[in-house]
């Protein structure tokens, strides 16, 4: 299994280096372009959620991506207590400007799991490699 760990920071986020790092790692592991796009989009949604709702600086958030022959797994470790966000029952309204992030996350990932622990929030995303 190959893994990539990124200790996030503001510059990684603001200068779009986050997805460049992710893209490089996924390319090296021969991840199909469709799955690459899905995984990167969902990581952007998950980190964006921490930026919006988390109560700690991005510098304390850790992102780990694991890649093996049959699945991709993302662990996002956030030392604050990001609220658990349930799967939306319906697609957000077409005219609405919010709420699509969770819809994307839950529809494109095979598993989404929020776990609150004493040291913060752990979000795990999994995507099977077909």
């Amino acid at each position: 299994m190959n893994s990539l760990q990124l200790n996030l920071n503001q510059s990684l986020w603001e200068q779009n280096q986050l997805f460049q790092e992710l893209e490089q790692f996924l390319l090296q592991n021969h991840v199909h372009p469709k799955q690459r796009f899905k995984l990167i989009t969902c990581v952007l949604e998950a980190v964006g959620n921490v930026v919006r709702h988390g109560a700690c600086p991005l510098e304390k958030v850790i992102l780990i991506v694991h890649c093996n022959h049959d699945s991709l797994t993302v662990d996002l470790l956030d030392p604050s207590f990001t609220p658990e966000l349930a799967m939306p029952q319906n697609c957000p309204s077409r005219d609405g400007e919010t709420g699509r992030g969770l819809w994307i996350l839950y529809n494109w990932m095979d598993k989404v799991r929020f776990q609150h622990a004493i040291n913060g929030t752990h979000l795990r995303l999994s995507l099977l490699r077909h």
Partner: peptide
Amino acid sequence: RYMDSSGLS
């Protein structure tokens, strides 16, 4: 190349 929900918004 990449767009997220805020880009859609």
